[in-house]
């Protein structure tokens, strides 16, 4: 009976862990899918081959190339590539149809609320903007940066931190099996010793 309860509590804990690794969203609306700046889609509405550019939600300004694409009526994609090879993709979502509660929920998920898009050269409407890192080929001659070294824009997910949950290295899987069996054996032996 005790062994069964240990087993089921283990399964339950693992289930909770796996579910917590997925971001929780209480909004009834899901954000649209945005293309990636690695292969941008849509029509170009603005293109700056140089200059100083801002990123919503970030105090720092950046020197580099900035291209803005109109993907659909409510979706705009901004692809900034700095002189250092740091790429910042900003997903602009026209949020006019969202409720205040939904906007607050998306803000808690990392979206920046922009009350007036015209300040950024877009339509005079509410926007939600989210920044995502990528790496790009700079024109400024600097070395390209890694995707995690952006100032003020971090997209490190739990998957990046928990290297244990990667399937690529078979040694990690063998190591987990070995550690698991070792732990089970020690647990069994400890129990036997007490008896």
């Amino acid at each position: 009976m005790r062994n069964k309860s240990i087993f089921f509590s283990t399964i339950f804990s693992l289930f909770i862990f796996l579910n917590l690794s997925v971001p929780l969203s209480f909004a009834t609306t899901t954000p649209p899918e945005f293309p990636s700046c690695a292969n941008p889609q849509g029509s170009i509405i603005a293109n700056y081959s140089s200059g100083t550019h801002g990123v919503p939600g970030v105090v720092t300004t950046y020197q580099g190339v900035d291209t803005v694409y109109s993907v659909s009526e409510n979706i705009v994609l901004q692809c900034l590539c700095t002189v250092d090879g740091e790429g910042i993709q900003t997903n602009w979502w026209k949020a006019s149809s969202l409720t205040e509660e939904e906007i607050e929920s998306f803000k808690s998920q990392g979206w920046n609320f922009i009350p007036d898009g015209s300040a950024w050269g877009l339509d005079p409407a509410y926007y939600l903007a989210k920044n995502v890192n990528y790496t790009c080929r700079s024109t400024g001659g600097g070395e390209s940066s890694s995707s995690s070294s952006s100032s003020g824009v971090t997209t490190t997910s739990i998957g990046d931190v928990l290297g244990l949950a990667a399937t690529g290295n078979i040694k990690i899987i063998y190591g987990l099996i070995f550690a698991g069996f070792l732990s089970l054996v020690f647990g069994y032996l400890l129990k036997e010793k007490r008896v």
Binding site: R2, I6, F7, S9, T10, I11, S13, L14, L164, A165, A166, T167, G168, I170, I172, I173, Y174, L176, I177, A179, G180, F181, L182, S183, L184, V185, F186, G187, Y188, L190, K191, R194
Partner: peptide, 29 residues
């Protein structure tokens, strides 16, 4: 302590199983 070790052992083995299945899952990629 023994229960803790057993639980940890179970978690490691289950996680290894999940990773191994995912590694060979024909739908990955």
């Amino acid at each position: 302590m023994s229960k803790l070790l057993k639980a940890f052992g179970m978690i490691c083995i289950i996680l290894a199983g999940v990773l191994y299945w995912q590694r060979n899952n024909p739908k990955r990629l």
